[in-house]
Design a protein around this nucleic acid. Sequence first.
DNA 1: AAATATCTTTCTTTCGAAAATATGGCGTGT
DNA 2: ACACGCCATATTTTCGAAAGAAAGATATTT
Lengths: 252, 252
Amino acid sequence: MRRHRVRVGRSGPQPANDEILDAQGGVATLAEAAYRRLRQDIVAGVFAPSQPLRLELLKQRYGLSFSPLREALNRLQTERLVVTAPLRGFSVAPVSIEEMWDATETRILIECEALRRSIAHGDDDWEAGIVAAFHALDLQVRRKAASSGIGDDELIALETRHQDFHRALIVRCRSRRLIDIADQLYVETQRYRLPTLAGQNPAASRDVALEHRQIMEATLERRGDEAAALLAAHYRKTSTIVESYMERAPAK
Amino acid sequence: MRRHRVRVGRSGPQPANDEILDAQGGVATLAEAAYRRLRQDIVAGVFAPSQPLRLELLKQRYGLSFSPLREALNRLQTERLVVTAPLRGFSVAPVSIEEMWDATETRILIECEALRRSIAHGDDDWEAGIVAAFHALDLQVRRKAASSGIGDDELIALETRHQDFHRALIVRCRSRRLIDIADQLYVETQRYRLPTLAGQNPAASRDVALEHRQIMEATLERRGDEAAALLAAHYRKTSTIVESYMERAPAK
DNA sequence: AAATATCTTTCTTTCGAAAATATGGCGTGT
DNA sequence: ACACGCCATATTTTCGAAAGAAAGATATTT
């Protein structure tokens, strides 16, 4: 699972630590790299929900020392991907249907407001960004549909485009906080979506691309109420599917 | 500024580290203690906005080593009280009128929604909690009005009661996320309120207690729209005062 | 046999030092 | 004088080890 070598910050006392992970763009510090990789692995389900994250294990897996791992885990804790009890270390945050709905409804509250504000303030660049993100997502969806097996890297690319599209819609809301909270809730809900996607037949009775297109069109035509309603319905539909999946396959 | 001694976790290699800070209830780990003290000091303005937080300084000031300080700073970073550039260390997050309004309006969005939901679901315990928190706040306000000089500990007590009252209003919203985001935004906005309070004449042309009472009454009588409107007006009024204060006394 | 105490093991947490980078001063050349 | 590069210093970041708790195992007592 190790990739190419990327210089990252300094290398520590012992000589050979240059070849460190990351693979996703130059990262300045090992703590930052640890943060990204841990988040990725938790969201992707490499570590199961509620699983204890023993530091010795992480140290081996990522080839890092305690300090950067601890910093990463502390950040992930405030982002609700990791939980911790004072002298008992860290664990992957547990999952539940209640938590999923809370994340979903909070996301709807935040993003609908941000979308309305973006529609109120959006300029030409904003519109262009939405169209571009939509097409990039669309292309990636077709590419995935073409290749039968869903490669790991392809899934990451797809999720990135998906997040980019939804972020493009709200990016002109003029509130850093709304955007950041939305980003965080995206990652939280992604945790619930990914296992569902993996265990589902590709011909799901749902046209996600169409839903995205309708949201985009309502947004570009500045119909705020309709765009917000479509967006909320889009998220609730997804969560309903995830919910029924979770009821069939409990734990995991 | 050092208080009594409180056992906290272990004590580290060198013998005399038992007597560690905190003073606010038993804390299990030094990192947790560092987090609370740092947050308190940033909010109280002990460290000025944008001031670099040199680790050597913090190490001396709190009698701790790098590790717990770094963990605390990383958590504060995700809470917007601290900013960091990759190899340039940490600084206190800068303040600006724009940021203050963003925090305020986001808080209004979150808390008004949470208040409506609490009003929809609230039971007797919830109502009792609100009344109790209101009176505790009221008592503390009178106590403060009695003593001319505003003691440091008294101000902390007052702020705690204030936060408790506002939290009591929304606590039955059935969403951990809304409550947590509201808590976080309370701390963020507190940073702006405190300097204003310090530099203001006590007979400010405003009856905060009355505003609180009106919010409480509308809430208890389940008039959701009115309660939300009063709450929003309450927060906007405060921020308007803070804004004019910031315009007169820029930096700081 | 059950309950309790003690010991061992495992793990987290903290520390101090080492390694790497950034910063600022100084000198040199144009 | 100004710009540019080099060296010394200050600061961050990372590491490995040491110090304590928690969890589990074993023994002891009732």
